[in-house]
């Protein structure tokens, strides 16, 4: 009767194919975050996470698409970003999510760090088909 469900308020799609796409993409995320009144620190965390993930997408899958959504649940508003690519996928997600795996000089994944920056984090990957990463940042969280 009174369950609070996640509702999508707006949808926006962007293609990240080139290195030069990252900065405009970050700006777009910032626009949406500003619109819902997200504080500066949370905005910075969200955009940094978005930057990390778009960079991974470029480096390991040659680019992909990002869905930017403004979502709402109960009294909270937030931004949800879905990164999907058709790259080689990640063999061992568990390993990729371990702290320290990211600190290697060549491996720029930074997935555990990225997870700490956002409220919700979900990753799905099928080898040779692609990877989908969904992050959500609440306005106050």
């Amino acid at each position: 009767m009174m369950t609070t469900q996640l509702v999508t308020l707006t949808k926006d799609r962007m293609v990240v194919k080139l290195e030069q796409d990252v900065v405009p993409f970050r700006n777009r995320v910032k626009e949406h975050a500003t619109k819902i009144g997200m504080g500066l620190v949370n905005q910075t965390k969200l955009i940094t996470a978005a930057s990390e993930l778009s960079r991974n997408m470029l480096r390991y899958a040659g680019g992909g698409e990002v869905l930017i959504e403004v979502v709402s649940k109960g009294r909270e508003n937030g931004i949800r970003l879905t990164f999907s690519d058709k790259g080689p996928g990640i063999e061992d997600i568990k390993k990729a999510m371990q702290d320290g795996y990211s600190t290697g000089k060549s491996l720029g994944l930074g997935l555990p760090g990225t997870k700490r920056l956002v409220s919700e984090f979900d990753i799905k990957s099928v080898p040779n088909q692609g990877t989908t990463v969904i992050i959500l940042k609440w306005k106050n969280g």
Binding site: T44, G113, T114, R116
Partner: peptide, 14 residues
């Protein structure tokens, strides 16, 4: 460095 950037870097583990 901006405060928000400093907080984010620490959270990121960097």
């Amino acid at each position: 460095m901006q405060p928000a950037v400093a907080i984010t870097l620490v959270e990121l583990g960097l």
